[in-house]
Design a binder for these strands. Structure first.
Length: 469
DNA sequence: TTTTGAGTTGTTCGA
DNA sequence: GTCGAACAACTCAAA
């Protein structure tokens, strides 16, 4: 076979639009072989997740469909990528393998292994941008030459970076070379995983683009006002598509209209890049606190309380609604993620890593950098320089402020459906007569609060104060 | 080097 | 209900 063959290694860039690696391969090579590897180290590793893998398999199927529509196909490997790619390079005579650069700790180690094996096969790995809004995310530096640790100055610098052009999807692809087999998309069960998510979002570039079109149509303009209300579908819900790269964050950014809503949303896209930037420069964050003074802090190992949190039976309606939404949909509204995160780490004094793991297991959009960054932030051990006492959320206040009509809580905690609005944030205050009248007896139909928030707050301040000293 | 201003999305208390 | 102040003084980034 001719040396004019290139491989394109897909990872979490499962799209054709605005794909620099794919475009570069097609521009310079006659034959291009797209490859995706189902890597057991990822699928069965510490971030194993049935719901998210189910979504990913749909993304892979969608990508293969789009490639086939354009005359190409997708090779689906079941072995580690270093082995699959080296073998394919030998088989096809490819001397170049294109991929999208990934800043995550796992991905960087994996790319190192791939590079080595490819070298032995006489091929070279070429990493192109495509994961972030800016190309040189790792190189963004403060005036002193350090990586950023505070969002606002990062945002300022990030906003000033010149962006690359958005690339169109290729119109046509060459067929696979003779003898190269495409391989099928396995079922979730065949991977030994299962998902019990109800009405999961449909994975793939096609569904992602439809959702993007709908969001750009109108909701983006109201984003600044609606994104904090969990009962309203005011967020973009693009996170799973962004995680698997069904959508290019660069393209989304380029297509945003002007205005307050779009600006607020753009800021959220910057948070994604910020978390990736921080994890890139502090890969140890995946396991330990960014702020060293909080390392070695003592956490509670109360398994019963942790289970109550996971299953949404803490006795705090907004917390329980959020945790049940996560169980049911594989997704949780952002505002509520903060409330349940604060509750776990501050009220229950349970290690943020336990919450991080649970989220990664359940979230369809679970992304190591974002999840880790946000957990560290809400646990007050990460990039947020504000003292802990400013981040102990009051679940009752939050419910009154962000779900004033109780629409969200009633949707996910049906046993509270007939509780009068005045008691919905603190159902334990219901007089007995009201409890039996609304069919919600506390301690029987809905749990007593598992901690007293005011007391837990004082204890959390003492814990964090002691650790900071 | 020193100084200055600011820090995602808070809470509680008391007037 | 609404408002401002206090929380307690720390770290980061830029001038």
């Amino acid at each position: 076979m001719s040396a004019r063959t290139a491989l394109v290694w897909f990872t979490r860039d499962l799209r054709l639009h605005d794909h620099p690696a794919l475009t570069a391969a097609l521009d310079t090579h006659e034959r291009v072989v797209p490859v995706f590897c189902l890597d057991d180290r990822l699928l069965r590793g510490r971030h194993e997740s049935g719901p998210r893998t189910a979504f990913m398999l749909e993304c892979v199927g969608d990508l293969r469909g789009s490639l086939r529509e354009r005359g190409g196909d997708l090779v689906i490997g079941r072995e580690p990528p270093e082995r699959v790619l080296a073998e394919l390079a030998r088989e096809t005579g490819a001397t170049e393998v294109y991929c999208t650069a990934d800043s995550g700790p796992f991905a960087r180690r994996r790319a190192g292994r791939v590079r080595e094996e490819l070298a032995a096969a006489g091929a070279e790995l070429r990493a192109k941008p495509g994961l972030h809004a800016v190309d040189d995310l790792g190189r963004l530096r403060t005036g002193a030459g350090d990586p950023y640790r505070v969002f606002s100055p990062f945002h300022r610098a990030w906003s000033q970076v010149t962006r690359r052009e958005v690339l169109p999807a290729p119109a046509a692809l060459p067929p696979l070379p003779a003898g190269v087999r495409s391989g099928g998309v396995p079922s979730l069960a065949a991977l030994g995983l299962e998902s019990d998510v109800e009405e999961p979002p449909r994975g793939g570039e096609g569904p992602g683009r439809s959702r993007l079109e709908r969001f750009l149509e109108a909701p983006v303009r109201a984003y600044a006002d609606a994104n904090d209300l969990p009962a309203v579908d005011g967020t973009s819900r693009l996170s799973p598509y962004l995680h698997f790269g069904c959508l290019s964050v660069r393209e989304i950014e380029a297509r945003l209209p002007r205005g307050k809503g779009a600006e607020a949303f753009h800021r959220q896209l910057c948070w994604r890049d910020f978390h990736h930037h921080v994890l890139l420069h502090h890969p140890g964050n995946a396991r330990e606190e960014l702020q060293s003074r909080y390392r070695g802090m003592e956490w509670s190992d109360d398994e019963e309380r942790f289970a109550a949190w996971c299953e949404g039976r803490t006795g705090y309606p907004l917390v329980d609604a959020g945790m049940r939404q996560l169980l049911r949909e594989g997704w949780m509204h952002n505002r509520v993620r903060l409330v349940v995160g604060s509750f776990l780490t501050k009220d229950l004094a349970i290690d943020w890593r336990a919450g991080e793991r649970w989220f990664m297991r359940r979230l369809v959009d679970g992304d190591e950098a974002n999840n880790n960054g946000n957990w560290q932030w809400i646990a007050s051990v990460g990039t947020d320089p504000q003292p802990a006492y400013r981040r102990i959320y009051n679940p009752t206040r939050h419910q009154e402020r962000y779900d004033p009509d109780g629409e969200y809580v009633r949707r996910y905690v049906p046993e509270l459906r007939d509780v009068p609005g005045e008691f919905l944030a603190e159902p334990w205050r219901m007089p007995e007569a009201v409890q039996s009248e609304s069919g919600c007896v506390i301690g029987r139909d809905y749990p007593e609060p598992i901690v007293d928030h005011a007391e837990a707050r004082r204890a959390a301040l003492a814990r964090y104060g002691a650790a900071a000293r």
